[in-house]
């Protein structure tokens, strides 16, 4: 009886991983090609930029905030990089740094509005999302920007046989994980997400925390955008559109709560890979192009649904029994 309960608790606790394995097995059965090493490395490669952005968004979600501007930041950063290199002939490194600087500028605007002007994160980033994309189309005259070989060759470069994008993805994930679990600032992010008022009372500088996370989110969105563009080689006007939702979905699928205070880097990585796995799996299974997004959305819905059931069940299971049966009267 007891062990049965424990098992169901264990299962519920690990729903993200279970779902991941389940999706993996199903696709593997229907399309053996899916299980090949090449396809697997491809999935991780393709999920790298969503994963990086998802980690950034997760920082924001940890404080119960939200950042809708990441799609526009991706676009702005990579378009700036492309324009700097193509039109102003700056060295590649300077172009990339320039793109990242633009991303950080948007992060700064977000942070300023949210911290100093006290505007809700949803409204702030909705504004910067619209304005950011508009600035991007204005810069590019809504034309596509081709990126030079120096950048695209980075995209195909490998380190020890592993594609550069994957290396960067893993590196960022590890740094983010260490940052969150092993530094004071990281722990304080969780504290602020749990209860901002108590955090303030405990002497934590909430403004500093919020500043850090919105800047980090913009930074990672910029990096993600450039990594993605290094693979595609071209930035069109719709680049990055809707990626904010993929990134949020990745974080939430990985167990990050929209209410703040809980979430892990490993979960977000898993979530990002899962989204990509579903998309690639559907391609491998040669599912109709128009049906693929329907199935993806359906699976994400089930994941969110299971997560909410799990949260409710866990709350019930962990609720304190006020009555001690051993002391019962007769």
């Amino acid at each position: 009886m007891r062990s049965k309960e424990d098992i169901s608790k264990l299962l519920l606790k690990n729903i993200p991983i279970l779902l991941f394995v389940l999706v993996f097995v199903i696709f593997g059965i229907f399309s053996p090609k899916f299980l090949s090493m090449a396809s697997f490395s491809n999935i991780i490669l393709n999920s790298s930029y969503v994963g990086i952005i998802g980690i950034g968004i997760m920082f924001v979600l940890l404080t119960a905030g939200i950042d809708l501007s990441v799609g526009s930041v991706m676009y702005l950063a990579s378009a700036s990089t492309g324009l700097l290199i193509a039109n102003y002939h700056v060295p590649t490194v300077v172009g990339v740094l320039g793109g990242i600087a633009v991303a950080l500028l948007v992060g700064l605007i977000n942070a300023f509005c949210i911290i100093k002007l006290e505007i809700l994160p949803f409204v702030t980033t909705l504004g910067t999302m619209t304005a950011g994309r508009a600035v991007g189309t204005w810069m590019t005259h809504s034309e596509s920007v081709n990126l030079p070989k120096t950048i695209t060759s980075l995209g195909s470069q490998k380190v020890l046989g592993i594609p550069m994008a994957i290396v960067l993805f893993l590196l960022i994930a590890v740094i983010a994980a260490v940052f969150l679990s092993k530094t004071q600032l990281g722990r304080q992010i969780y504290a602020v997400g749990n209860d901002p008022e108590e955090a303030r009372k405990a002497g934590i500088n909430n403004k500093k925390i919020l500043f850090t996370i919105y800047m980090l989110c913009a930074l990672l969105a910029g990096i993600g955008g450039i990594i993605s563009v290094a693979q595609i080689g071209i930035v069109n006007a719709a680049f990055g559109k809707g990626e904010e939702f993929n990134a949020i979905a990745a974080a939430v699928l990985g167990g990050t709560s929209l209410a703040g205070g809980s979430g892990k880097v490993s979960g977000t990585v898993l979530g990002a890979v899962m989204i990509q796995m579903i998309q690639s799996g559907l391609v491998y299974m040669q599912v109709d192009m128009y049906i693929q997004p329907l199935i993806s959305a359906g699976i994400i819905f089930i994941a969110v649904f299971l997560d909410s059931i799990r949260a409710r069940y866990m709350a019930k299971a962990e609720a304190r029994n006020i009555r001690n049966e051993n002391l019962a009267n007769g």
């Binding site: 504290a191 108590e198 405990a202 934590i204 205070g261 809980s262």
Partner: peptide
Amino acid sequence: LNLFTNLSILDNVYIN
């Protein structure tokens, strides 16, 4: 209670 329930006892004691 001024504790961060999502963190460990150690984190709570040394949060700042």
